[in-house]
Amino acid sequence: MNTVASTTAGSNSSALSRNKLLDNLLRILTRSAAIAVLVMLGGVILSLIEGSLPALKTFGLSFVHTESWNPVTEKFGAAAPIYGTLMTSLIAMLIGIPLSIGIAIFITELCPPKLKRPISTAIELLAGIPSIIYGIWGLFVLAPLLQKYVQPVLINTFDGVPGLQNLFAGPPYGIGILTAGLILSIMVLPFITSITRDVFETVPPMLKESAYGLGCTTWEVVRHVVLPFTKTGVIGGVMLGLGRALGETMAVTFVIGNAHRISSSLLAPGTTISASIANEFTEADGELYTSSLIALGLILFVITFIVLAAARLMLARMRRAEGK
């Protein structure tokens, strides 16, 4: 009896110490993984700052608002790429968000069960297509279609309408800011759709059924029950899509026209931060040129950071408004 008790106690204590060891090991491993991410991020920031110092020292704050980008005279300004990055992302969001949320609503609320799976799979497949394929498709398929059928209509329709006339001024090249925005909207679609679909599915059926029971239409249920319940998740999905749109490189490079200019027309060629870097980094010689490209990278980093911070702030404010 005694011996039995002591052996169990012994095995218990050895099992306990083994568990403790395992727990410690796990903690150390996961913690170092987390720290590694921070170290890498810090390293990226530091090397970006270090690399862009020569450009920032030479041009100062004027780097941000100068439009000219001249490798011959080594005078560089980031205004055109910054404008292009923000504008294409804005177009992508204007088209992408309503479309994605619409798809998510259809899948979760209205879709016949038979169709649910094929539509979801199709959306996930869209996410798996490499961006260079989007670029090539955009250049060889979408751009000629836009040039032939869509852009002439836009130019003629808005000709003479103040404001819009400048926004849709010719000639129709097929490629440009608008085309880049369109491609981006297709690329962000799967991200926003799959996240909003997932969060829509977390809405307790009882809430929805009660609303239906009160005589609500589907739209009213979506508007007053589903969206308020899931808005944090939806905003998270939108931010993920926006992050992708801001940084997308290859697809945009193919269809944006790569001109370091800011023009009032959306049909005109432009450039983005990542497209400029992809185009010019390999052939950039001279410290100032390379440094200006790295400074562009730093600016993109700052823009992304601001976007994420703004999203956080918005969520916090919403929570406060709800009194949570």
Binding site: N70, P71, T253, F254, G257, N258, A259, T271, N279, D285
Partner: peptide, 15 residues
């Protein structure tokens, strides 16, 4: 001027 890439006065760029 003359360089591997220049500030083009007009036109669209292809990669």
């Amino acid at each position: 001027g003359v360089e591997a890439s220049v500030e083009w006065p007009v036109g669209i760029g292809g990669k």
